[in-house]
Structure formats: structure tokens, C-alpha cells
Amino acid sequence: MNQPDVRDRLIVGLDVSSRSEAETIVAELGDAVSTYKIGYQLVFAGGLPLVEEMSRAGKRVFLDMKLLDIANTVEKGIESISRLGAAMTTIHAYPHAMAAAAKAAEGSDLLILAVTVLTSLDEADLAAAGYAGTIAGLVATRAAQARDAGIGGLVASAAEASALRRLVGPDMALVTPGIRPSGSAAGDQKRIATPTEALRDGASHLVVARPIIAAPDRRAAALAILAEMASA
């Protein structure tokens, strides 16, 4: 996988509840940030049109929808997301969904990312959901299935990044949420890492939301994280 410039490796999560707030953040960050994540919170608050608008303005948009349904529904959903101009989107790493998504994205520039295990979950959460075994074991199984299905990348905790990079090789994207600069609060994330740790362990892209969007000076916060990424 060709390593992108450090600016293209940072994905800022627009985890806000209004389109106007999202537009303010994008304007404040300016050319410091090239890629943004739009998820449920903003999509369901009128933010979906921003995917097309930001794409036309030269920004890359990661539409984080975590699709999971019957194969035909996933396939048609991926086709629609591709037409919106999104650069990246997510599905849950179930074999039938990954096969459908890979088929739908074939020939397009849309990067499909398979979510292995949510970074807000720990071993106790996994057991409560009825899964046997460990998080590491489930992540490895789903990652191997994603690789074999032709999926372009994975979303996983930085805690699994090193093992996943060895498993899937250099060509798949590895996107790690739960990134917190040194001294930041963990919030509701249970498996977190600093930018330096995540990149050192094989992540290709880092998703950062609260440490940037909740900062008093958002642009300065983003530039500080980029500087840490560059030094790593």
C-alpha cells in the first residue's frame, strides 16, 4: 500500500448534531485537514448532503454507516454510497456482507472498511453479547475473512494493529479510532492509543474526533496531532 501524506492519514470525526456545526468545524480546520468522518449522529441530523458537497469541494469523506443486512441490501447500499462520492465507508465484518460490499464497490474508488470489533467493547462486553473466546481471536478471524473477501481495509483498535498488519500484509488500509493524544481523556473508549503508538503498530489512518472538535482552538489541536504523526 502506498503510504499517504501525513495530512491524508488523519480523519477528523464530525461527531456533532447539526450541519451548521459541522460546516463551522470544516471551515476552522481549513487546509489542515483533508478527510472527515460522517457517522450516524450527523447523518440523522441532516448531514448526508455534506458527503456530496464536501467531495465536490476537494475533501475526502468517510461515511461511517457500519452496514449489516442481507446481501442484496448491503450491495445496493454500497452502490448508493459510491454515487454520493464518499471515499470510504464501513460495514460490519460478517462474511456475507463483506462479499456483497466487495462486489458492489468493484471498479469504483470507494474504499470498503470492515469493522472487526467496536473499540468501545471489552472482553466482558463480548461475553455478554454471547461471543465465546477473546477480542483478539474474533478480530483475527474477521480480519482474515475480510482479506480473503477482497475488502480494502479494516477498522480496529490500535491494540490489534500490530497483529493485524502481520496477518493482512502491507496492502490493506488499517483505520484506528480510539486515538487520544497524550493527556487526553479516554471518554467512552476502552481500547485507546496515542497517534505515535497507533502508527508505530501499523495503522494507516487515524480517526480523531473529540480531541480536535472539542478543543478551544480546533486548528491548533489538529496541527499538533499532525506534528506528532509526522514525528512518528
Rank of each mutant, 00 (worst) to 15 (best):
G46S: 06
L226G: 08
M88P: 02
A114Y: 10
E23H: 08
G85D: 07
A99K: 14
P49A: 01
R147K: 15
S17I: 14
V139Y: 14
P211G: 14
V208N: 00
A163V: 00
A105L: 05
D171M: 00
T194M: 06
G58V: 08
K190E: 02
G46I: 02
E53I: 14
I179R: 00
K103A: 10
K59V: 13
L154A: 04
A124Q: 14
G39N: 11
Q189W: 12
T73S: 09
G39Y: 11
D64S: 13
R219V: 12
N2Q: 10
K59L: 05
S162A: 07
S162I: 00
P195A: 03
Q3Y: 02
M229A: 07
A27H: 14
K103V: 04
L118W: 15
T176I: 07
K59M: 02
R9C: 04
R9A: 08
M65I: 15
T90I: 03
L111C: 06
K66L: 09
V74W: 12
K190A: 02
G46T: 00
L118V: 13
H92I: 13
A101D: 05
H96G: 07
E53A: 11
P170N: 04
S82G: 14
M98D: 07
M98G: 06
T194E: 08
L223M: 13
E106F: 11
D217L: 10
S34R: 12
D8E: 07
P49R: 06
A87P: 12
A185V: 08
R200N: 10
L126N: 09
A209N: 09
I70C: 09
V175E: 05
S18P: 14
A159W: 14
G130M: 05
S120M: 02
S82D: 15
M1D: 11
K190T: 08
A198P: 11
G183L: 01
S157K: 12
S55W: 02
A159L: 15
V61Q: 01
M98C: 07
A99V: 11
V117F: 06
M229R: 05
A124V: 09
A124G: 04
R166C: 09
D201F: 11
Y36I: 13
L50R: 00
T24G: 11
T196M: 01
P49F: 03
E197V: 04
